[in-house]
């Protein structure tokens, strides 16, 4: 019972309180770049979640059974980024062959994910937080869902911004960042909610 509570706390805190995009600033590039339309935001969010889950499932055993066991901890960055790059490439090939319909939807986003710092960030964070395998997977799922949530909310906000008349210096990226700031402010309101949920 305690375990499940613990997992729920990890999940909720990574979706709402420590939202990767809005409070930890990881994955800002796709968040600003691909959030113009709701279907693109959805596609990107889902692809990132899948790649994050796969990457954690592979990197956690690598860290604990290979790098730590042989004292190669300093190779972490190189090994993880290689794993992520090859995973993305493989996922692309597999989807292309086996599920072409899904590939049509998500394929565009996959090459963009290799350089998404949220994926490398979540794998490294899981190791640094000392999570077990199950905890790592749950926290990764939370991060992915948090990313998706932020993307969806923000694409809605951006479609409203596009209809407005904005002062010239603020047009484009400046007003987008300021809008993101307000969204981030809203997410700050979740702080403290998770600690007290089972109290």
């Amino acid at each position: 019972m305690m375990d499940i509570k613990n997992l729920i706390v990890i999940l909720l805190s990574s979706v709402l309180v420590n939202n990767y995009v809005l409070t930890r600033f990881l994955g800002i590039c796709p968040f600003l770049g691909v959030s113009k339309k709701i279907d693109q935001a959805m596609g990107m969010g889902i692809s990132v979640t899948i790649v994050m889950l796969l990457a954690t499932a592979v990197t956690w055993p690598i860290q604990n059974f290979i790098l730590d066991a042989f004292g190669l901890g300093y190779m972490q960055t190189i090994v993880f980024i290689l794993v992520i790059a090859s995973l993305v490439q493989m996922l692309e090939l597999v989807l292309k062959r086996l599920i072409p319909s899904l590939y049509k939807g998500l394929g565009v986003y996959l090459p963009l994910i290799t350089t998404n710092c949220a994926v490398l960030g979540v794998t490294i964070n899981n190791i640094e937080d000392g999570f077990t395998f199950i905890e790592s997977m749950v926290s990764t799922l939370g991060c992915g869902l948090g990313f998706l949530l932020a993307m969806l909310l923000f694409s809605g906000i951006r479609s409203r911004i596009d209809e407005r008349n904005i002062a010239k210096p603020f047009q484009g990226i400046a007003i987008t960042l300021i809008a993101a700031s307000f969204l981030s402010l809203a997410f700050m309101g979740f702080g403290g909610i998770v600690e007290n949920i089972f109290a």
Partner: peptide, 9 residues
């Protein structure tokens, strides 16, 4: 964090 986004914008 919101302050960072605001200052950047």
């Amino acid at each position: 964090s919101p302050g960072g986004l605001l200052v950047f914008g």
